[in-house]
Simulated assay, not measured.
Amino acid sequence: MSCWETIGDYALRSVGIGERLLPRDNFTLCQQITLIGSGLIWNVYFGVLAMASGFFLAVAVAMGKAARSAWVRKPSEWFILVFRGSPLFIQFFFAYFFFLNLKSVSPFFDSLTSAGLGALIVLFLNTAAYSGEIFYGALRTIPKGETEAADAYGFTGWARFRRIVFPTMLRLAWPAYTNEAIFLFHATTLVYFSGFPAWQQKGDALYYASYFADKTFNPFVPYPILAGYFILLTLVIIWLFGVANRRLNRHMPQELRRPIRFRPNLIR
């Protein structure tokens, strides 16, 4: 089988398109690159949807934590504490068995035990908690002069938040939020190694890398391929967020613009 035939058979296998059976022996480099790249589709799926949906909850949580009312502030503080204080791996396990119990109550909850929805909910809540803390820190560092100028011009309520507070908060938080986005995409590799099983061997990139490592007893081929894919994915994220960062800071003098720097979380 040529490499082009392998790509045609396995490039979309992780989403159920193409050859159903995985190769059993005589593994080629092309097979490993293709299948691991196919699994990366799921990592991108989890990362993009969790980041896009978690952004709005993160803003709400940050505003809630900054609120004066304890009835609004305390739930936000506890939400951040629970999801930042517990390991993501444990959150996957807890959520899976919780959804499994709900499934036994009613078939309506059956979809929650699938990784495509159940694991996505966990990632959504986890990134919302971390991003909420980032946005809250940015809210605390908004220059007082900007809010005083907004008050002087008569901005109140939603108009004040939309035109003054939110853009400044986003600009200040964006470099740290970029690192959160990078970590989130890396964290998607935990999905199929926690409670959520892969259905019909439709796993993510790490799932296929582990498959080849187990079959060949040689981790020095599939895992470097996996690392290479995630390095490329990280570079794409940095570029995209860098474009957004320049857009957010377009009105600032060049010497005051904050560039995007990659600062990985060593412990989480």
Rank of each mutant, 00 (worst) to 15 (best):
M1D: 10
M1P: 06
C3Q: 15
E5K: 15
E5V: 04
I7P: 02
Y10V: 03
A11F: 13
R13G: 04
G16C: 05
I17Y: 04
R24V: 05
D25W: 11
Q32L: 12
G37F: 08
G37R: 06
S38N: 11
G39H: 03
L40Y: 12
N43W: 07
Y45R: 01
F46N: 11
V48W: 12
A50L: 03
G54H: 03
G54T: 09
F55H: 08
L57R: 01
A60G: 13
A62W: 04
A66D: 12
R68I: 11
A70E: 15
V72H: 05
R73G: 05
E77L: 13
E77M: 08
L81S: 14
F83I: 04
S86H: 03
S86G: 05
F93N: 13
F93S: 05
A95F: 11
A95S: 14
A95G: 10
L100W: 06
L102I: 07
S104A: 11
V105S: 08
P107C: 02
F109W: 14
D110N: 14
D110L: 12
T113H: 03
T113Y: 00
S114A: 12
L117R: 08
V122C: 09
L123T: 07
T127D: 13
A129E: 04
A129Q: 03
G132S: 07
G132N: 07
R140M: 13
I142Q: 04
G145L: 04
E146M: 07
A149R: 08
A150P: 05
F155N: 08
R160Y: 06
R160P: 04
F161Q: 08
F161A: 07
F166C: 13
W174T: 06
W174I: 07
P175H: 02
N179G: 06
L184D: 05
H186Y: 15
T188I: 00
T188R: 02
T188F: 02
T188W: 01
L190M: 13
F193W: 12
S194W: 02
F196S: 09
P197G: 06
A198L: 10
W199E: 14
W199R: 12
Q201D: 14
Y208G: 00
A209M: 03
Y211R: 00
Y211V: 00
F212M: 05
F217V: 06
Y223S: 03
P224Y: 08
I225G: 01
I225L: 10
A227Y: 10
A227S: 09
F230M: 10
L232K: 09
L232D: 06
L232R: 10
L233S: 14
T234K: 09
L240F: 13
A244E: 07
A244T: 09
N245W: 00
Q254L: 15
R258H: 08
I260G: 04
P264F: 14
N265P: 10
N265Q: 11
L266A: 13
I267R: 00
